[in-house]
């Protein structure tokens, strides 16, 4: 049985197709990521999977329960770490934890242990008796994570877990998320618009663009799917166009010359680079600069959507329109 199964999951808000016939399945114990720019339909998908919204079309199961017809059962087994910081500022960390325990009907004795354990896991034991008001953004997020664990959910949904946090804090949160998966074997579904986050955390990634999944695989396979690594080469001055020579080498799949630089596509960059250099030196072609560019998810995103993720983020007009509609509809 899959932890999450979505079949043609669709959400329409008026004329806006926020999520467009999305299908995927998540294995138990997997960290599955939805990567895409703001307004791509990530939060709407999470809202449907966590029973906050009903799908317009299609269906989804979480832990084997239908999110529309068996929503009460779904709620029993999931946890949500929402995009907004929803811990109550006026209460202490501990009080927030207890409230969460009560909401999930965790017996007092068990709750006591689990709260201590969860706070320890996210490194918040010492701050637990302070008002949340005094916490930093990263601490709030960690408390939010800890709250998500009290009832030991089978599936934990993380909506943009590191949104708005600085780089160091982000790395800390990543560590906690990984620890959670390793120690508790929780299936996790996360959305993000940070490339590195998807790359570091996720076992598999679905790239989502304008409500559609355009690619779905492991980060490595997605990168490999680009056709390998790229070597950038420049020769000493006075050497003629060597495109043909390069193209004839056995390791080389493709060569493009951009100005003085040659962009060479190879399958295993680390191995190919010294081999190619050796061959060229034997031909007495002196190299002035060589570098190996590993494919990034950024390039994967470019490959599938025709634009860079940061460009997609930068198209404020479209994002603004989509976000406004989504926010209005989601409430």
């Amino acid at each position: 049985m899959y932890a999450i199964e979505a079949n043609n999951l669709t959400k329409r808000f008026g004329t806006l197709l926020a999520v467009d016939h999305v299908s995927f399945s998540v294995e138990e114990g997997e960290i599955f990521g939805f990567l895409g720019p703001n307004g791509a339909g990530k939060t709407t998908t999470i809202n449907m999977l966590t029973t906050l919204l009903n799908p317009t079309e299609g269906s989804a199961k979480v832990g084997g329960f239908d999110v529309e017809k068996e929503d009460a059962k779904v709620r029993e087994i999931i946890g949500l770490v929402p995009q907004d910081l929803t811990v109550d500022e006026d209460l202490t960390g501990m009080e927030n934890m207890w409230l969460q325990a009560k909401l999930y009907h965790v017996p007092t004795k068990v709750a006591k242990e689990r709260i201590a354990e969860a706070l320890e896991l996210v490194g918040m034991t010492n701050a637990a008796n302070r008002k949340v008001e005094t916490y930093s953004g990263g601490m709030r997020k960690r408390l939010e994570l800890a709250e998500g664990l009290i009832h030991q959910p089978k599936v934990l949904f993380l909506d943009e877990p590191t949104l708005g946090l600085d780089v160091q804090t982000r790395v800390v949160i990543w560590e906690y998320v990984k620890k959670l998966r390793d120690e508790h074997k929780i299936t996790m579904f996360l959305t993000t618009h940070y490339m590195e986050e998807a790359d570091v955390l996720c076992d598999r990634i679905a790239i989502i663009d304008r409500g559609k999944i355009v690619a779905l695989d492991t980060p490595q396979n997605l990168k490999d799917g680009l056709g390998g690594d790229i070597i950038e080469l420049e020769f000493n001055r006075g050497i003629d166009d060597q495109t043909k020579t390069l193209g004839s080498l056995s390791q080389v799949k493709d060569v493009k010359k951009i100005g003085d630089m040659y962009r060479i596509k190879v399958s295993k960059g680390e191995k190919a680079l010294p081999e190619i250099m050796e061959s060229l030196l034997k031909m007495n072609l002196k190299i002035s600069r060589a570098s190996l560019v590993k494919p990034t998810l950024d390039q994967v995103y470019l490959e599938y959507t025709g634009r860079y993720l940061r460009e997609a983020q930068g198209d404020m007009g479209e994002i603004w329109r989509r976000m406004r509609t989504l926010r209005r509809m989601r409430g």
């Binding site: 906050l52 949500l80 995009q83 910081l85 929803t86 109550d88 999930y104 009907h105």
Partner: peptide, 15 residues
Amino acid sequence: DRRFGFLNKLLVAPI
């Protein structure tokens, strides 16, 4: 509660 997302947290809980 709605604005700060707390309401959503309650709606996701099995209550």
